[in-house]
Amino acid sequence: MSSQIAIQKVSQPKPKPNQAELGFGHFFTDHMFIMDYTAGQGWHDPRIVPYGPIEVEPSVMVFHYGQATFEGLKAYNTVDGRILLFRPYANAERLNVSNERLCIPPIDPNFTVEAIKSLVEFEKNWIPAGEGNSLYIRPFVIATDPYLGVKPADTYKFFIVLSPVGAYYPEGINPVKIYVESNYVRAVKGGLGFTKTAGNYAASLKAQEEAKEKGFTQVLWLDGIEKKYIEEVGTMNVFFKIDGEVVTPSLEGSILAGITRDSTIKLLKSWNVPVNERRISIEELYVAHDQGKLEEAFGTGTAAVISPIGELNYNGRTISINGGKTGDLSSKIYHTITGIQNGSVADTFNWTVEVK
């Protein structure tokens, strides 16, 4: 695979969006990255081109059989004028975990990071200023064979698009209300739950829609077999502080190995906070609440970083966590990770990668 990235500049740059109205995922930069895969040739022709529609045949396999993987990470302006990526090699390696499960050829992680850095450097003027703002990076792969037949494709395209963003949830660092899903099933061990693939998110939409109609921000999924063990929130891994110990569901093949999840666990251990990765049932959580031992709950993910959970509703019973307020530990984790990301907190873990 050639590492020489060709560049085609846009003829007319777009106006930048108002930073106060960014939201999440609404705006896209002037350029994107594309690379092709052909069986027998491998990955080839990496290039940065103007952002815009892609032309494919209606029969391309991604539309019919769902061979699609993606990642999500961010670029940040630092207080001293640098541009930092947060753990991009972890994202590149996790993309290959998803690729392997969906029979998509792997991409050299070092080249993936090189491509991300090149595109971010080229579009650095799109990184928004302001607290909590960043440039969201979406690498993704799709199958492109024009063929109606169930098999792994022989051709693929790897894209990277960039989006200037604000807070993922309107609540920001304020606690969100979560609906515990007891009807629908998202994933089971042996399936695709541990990957970042389009089908996982399609499977969650119906429950998410119904939860929003009831006034909840997100859905907390239970396991797909017994429907009793906590797995993850739709866009986040989840943590609970119970009687001084932080508990998070263990990785058993049906939930995503979140990079912010891993960062949170490493931080907690460095602070000598007890942390336990294990199975935890929704009943155990409600008992802990009744006993006054459920101290905090929060989600972790690239988009929101840390999102405190102030309320859970399970089978019609609502519980308030920490009085519906952001807990001290949730706040400490949030400010530490975002501080590392924007360069205001020392990166003792060597998590950040500087763009040129």
Rank of each mutant, 00 (worst) to 15 (best):
V219G: 00
I173W: 06
V62I: 12
P139T: 12
V246P: 03
A68F: 08
G72Q: 14
A68Y: 04
A257D: 00
N322K: 09
H335D: 14
H289C: 12
E131A: 12
G258R: 00
K177V: 04
L102I: 13
E100I: 15
T352C: 10
S331T: 13
G66R: 07
A68D: 04
F70I: 13
H289K: 14
V188E: 06
G292L: 13
G327Y: 02
D36L: 03
I34S: 02
I321G: 03
C103H: 14
N342M: 10
S134A: 15
E231Q: 02
T260R: 07
A207L: 13
V345N: 07
N91Q: 15
K241T: 15
E209K: 15
L285H: 07
I7E: 02
N99C: 15
E55N: 04
A202W: 11
S11P: 05
R82G: 08
A6F: 07
M1C: 04
F194A: 14
V141C: 14
K212E: 12
D154Y: 13
V238L: 06
G327R: 00
E354Y: 09
R261S: 03
Y51F: 09
G199A: 10
R279W: 02
I173S: 11
D154P: 09
S250Q: 09
N315I: 13
L268F: 00
T260F: 12
S182V: 03
G42D: 05
P58A: 05
Y314I: 06
K196I: 13
V79A: 13
A257K: 00
V60R: 07
F158I: 07
I160G: 02
Y65Q: 00
V188G: 02
I142F: 10
A20V: 07
F239K: 00
H64Q: 00
V141G: 11
K214F: 10
I48M: 01
D243K: 14
P53E: 08
V219L: 11
K206H: 10
K177I: 07
K356W: 09
G343I: 08
E93I: 12
G301F: 01
D108I: 10
P139K: 05
L205D: 08
I178D: 09
G339E: 05
V150W: 09
F33Q: 01
I127A: 05
S182W: 14
V238H: 08
T302A: 12
P128Q: 10
Q67C: 02
E311S: 11
W221V: 03
A304I: 03
M61H: 01
S11K: 14
I306S: 03
W126G: 13
A143V: 14
I337R: 02
L205K: 08
K117T: 09
F111T: 03
I282E: 07
F27A: 14
V10K: 08
T248H: 02
D30R: 08
S182D: 14
N315T: 12
I173F: 11
G324I: 06
K266H: 04
S3A: 13
V287G: 06
P105E: 08
G253L: 06
Y147P: 05
T112W: 03
G292K: 12
F111V: 06
D290W: 12
E131S: 09
N133A: 10
G224D: 01
N272F: 12
M1N: 11
F349H: 06
V161W: 05
M35E: 03
A198F: 10
F27M: 12
S344L: 06
K241F: 06
M1I: 15
R279L: 02
